[in-house]
């Protein structure tokens, strides 16, 4: 085994198989933006704190600034552009729209990817658990209140669905 600095990666991005040559040092975030050319994944801090760059890898949220593109080879990535195709993705987007859960919208892609995972896996989450799940996504505009309300609405609509 010889270490290499340019690597061929294969991954499924928003449902479509893709193959690229990447530099070993390239972050998944930069790869998605600069090479794949999908720009919805936003870069806010590049050290894993703000959460704006969060994408789903094999269904779970990861910081794309703290992942190498090469490490994502062989995996399935969903970005904000693919959220609408997730089970509760459109419902989340609708509730965000109705609750005015975004202002500048820069942190929103990372919040929606994180929450798309969260509402699917924690159907009974309390408000406190929602806040905890959002703790890794910084938003400087909204004061969080309407984001929490929008996510709560998705979760309670799931309860309503279950009762029907």
């Amino acid at each position: 085994m010889e270490p290499i600095s340019v690597v061929t990666v294969d991954m499924i991005i928003n449902g479509r198989p893709q193959q690229y040559e990447v530099e070993a040092r390239q972050s998944l975030a930069d790869f998605l933006r600069d090479q794949v050319g999908i720009l919805g994944t936003h870069i806010g801090c590049e050290h894993g704190v703000c959460g704006a760059c969060t994408v789903l890898m094999d269904g779970v949220p990861v910081r794309s600034c703290l992942s190498l593109a090469v490490s994502a080879s062989g995996h399935e990535i969903v970005t904000i552009e693919g959220v609408k195709d997730l089970p509760l993705g459109q419902r989340l987007q609708q509730e965000f729209l109705e609750h005015h859960a975004l202002q500048c919208g820069f942190c929103t892609p990372g919040i929606l990817t994180t929450m798309a995972h969260f509402v699917a896996h924690y159907p009974k989450a309390t408000e406190e658990e929602i806040r905890d799940a959002l703790s890794g996504n910084l938003c400087r505009c909204t004061g969080y209140h309407n984001i929490i309300a929008a996510v709560s609405a998705v979760i309670s609509s799931r309860h309503d669905d279950a009762k029907r």
Binding site: M1, P3, S5, E23, D30, L68, S71
Partner: peptide, 12 residues
């Protein structure tokens, strides 16, 4: 804040 140049190995 880009990662410095590096090489990569991914053993199985």
């Amino acid at each position: 804040m880009k990662f410095p140049p590096t090489r990569y190995l991914r053993p199985v």
